[in-house]
Design a protein around this nucleic acid. Sequence first.
DNA 1: AACCGTAGTATTATAGTATAACATACTGGT
DNA 2: ACCAGTATGTTATACTATAATACTACGGTT
Lengths: 167, 167
Amino acid sequence: MDQSFFPERQHDHEACIHAGMAHAEAACESRNERFTANRRSVLELLLAVHRPLGVYELMKQFDWKGRRPAPAQIYRALEFLESIGLVHRIESCNAYLACSRPGRHHCTIFLVCEQCKTVAEVEAKRMQDAIADLADQTGFELHSQVLEARGLCPDCASATAPDGSDH
Amino acid sequence: MDQSFFPERQHDHEACIHAGMAHAEAACESRNERFTANRRSVLELLLAVHRPLGVYELMKQFDWKGRRPAPAQIYRALEFLESIGLVHRIESCNAYLACSRPGRHHCTIFLVCEQCKTVAEVEAKRMQDAIADLADQTGFELHSQVLEARGLCPDCASATAPDGSDH
DNA sequence: AACCGTAGTATTATAGTATAACATACTGGT
DNA sequence: ACCAGTATGTTATACTATAATACTACGGTT
């Protein structure tokens, strides 16, 4: 099926990064926005992992010929990337995740593994509808939603299961 | 109907605070937990408003014969109150809200007004089901969920509407 | 009543997250 | 070359959260 849920251990991660960057180029191009070195670096770092990174984690990894960028710099890049849908903020982690389906702006929920920190971004049309209905009923003017589930990804769940291999 | 959505401007707030405290007493009693002065004060402050308060906001309001408590103290009270379902953390606000339906531990979504900061806590059975199904499909072991909608409450929405009275 | 273990509190210090403010530099159009 | 607009570099500071440790209050023994 098309829905990717959690990334497979052996997926082609190089391709996955490359696709992300290519899409970002195109997205900036089409909006007449600049895909600067700063923005590029931050997105690359996020694409390199399938988990959210905090701003200070990003700062530390930022390889900048000796110097370290200040937080504001990272926040600016993130703000931009988020505004065009290339990055999502995960509220329950205070951290940022590269969008795994850029270009499709539908409503998604994030499944956050509390053990390995991997995050799956999955479509949540049913939840979208439920929220829209709820907003209608209550007279609430909906702007955005925060949908996050916390628990264990399949790998970590089976590793921790009572019948698992960790007795 | 039973569902209260956003609090009415003229609702009996004294009764609402009183009911909250009474329920808290009972909840602690039945679990053999102590409802100490610390915990009591924090809950009272939260019950006094229908919006989430940050820890440092709570600290400032904490009237403690001249002294101010340290953050850790507030966090401890909150942790306790949250553990028995009397208080919820609103992730997208980094703040805490008194539960408006204590005793019923069903899945709720928070509707956060970005203007007046009021929060409605409404039942979200449909969303609960949708998440459970999703977890099943993906092999995710669900522990908890963060469901928050951001936008404008009915009052603020009508005050801001293009045909409204604020032109 | 004195003792003891546990839970809760008080306090200090420090870690982690986020933004304000302002000077500088780059880009594209005239 | 100049200008306007956008993005960056830097310093400083505000806000949020936790660790570590000593102390105190309470409930159950003996």
